[in-house]
Amino acid sequence: MNTMKDKLTSSVRKAKAGTAPQSKSEAVDSAAPPAAKPTEEKTKTRPTAVKKNTKQKTVSANSVKESSVELFPSRVWPD
C-alpha cells in the first residue's frame, strides 16, 4: 500500500545524493553527472543595467527549457 510513497521518497533521496534513478539495464556505468553549479558571482558588480523592456525577448537556446515541451498536462481541474 505504501509502495508508491516509498518508491517516490527513495527516488528523491537518490536524486539528492546526486545519483539519478537508473534504468535497470544501464545500472552499471551510467551514474548521472552532478548538476551544474550556479556561477558564484558576487554582488560587488555595478548596480546598473536595470532597464525597462516591454518587448518579448528571444529564447536563449542553451539554458532555457521550453515549458511547452516539458509539460502537457492532459487533464485540467474544473473550476
Binding site: T45, T48, V50, K51, N53, Q56, S60, E66, S67
Partner: peptide, 30 residues
C-alpha cells in the same frame, strides 16, 4: 529570457493589474 510574464501582461485588451518589467545585464540586489 522566454519573457512569459511580459507576454502574459501584453495579452488581451485590459491592462494587467500589476506592472511587469524586464531587467538585463549585470544587475544585482542593490
Amino acid at each position: 529570457p522566454q519573457g512569459s510574464s511580459l507576454q502574459w501582461a501584453a495579452m488581451g485588451t485590459n491592462a494587467f493589474s500589476t506592472p511587469v518589467e524586464a531587467v538585463s545585464g549585470d544587475w544585482n540586489a542593490y
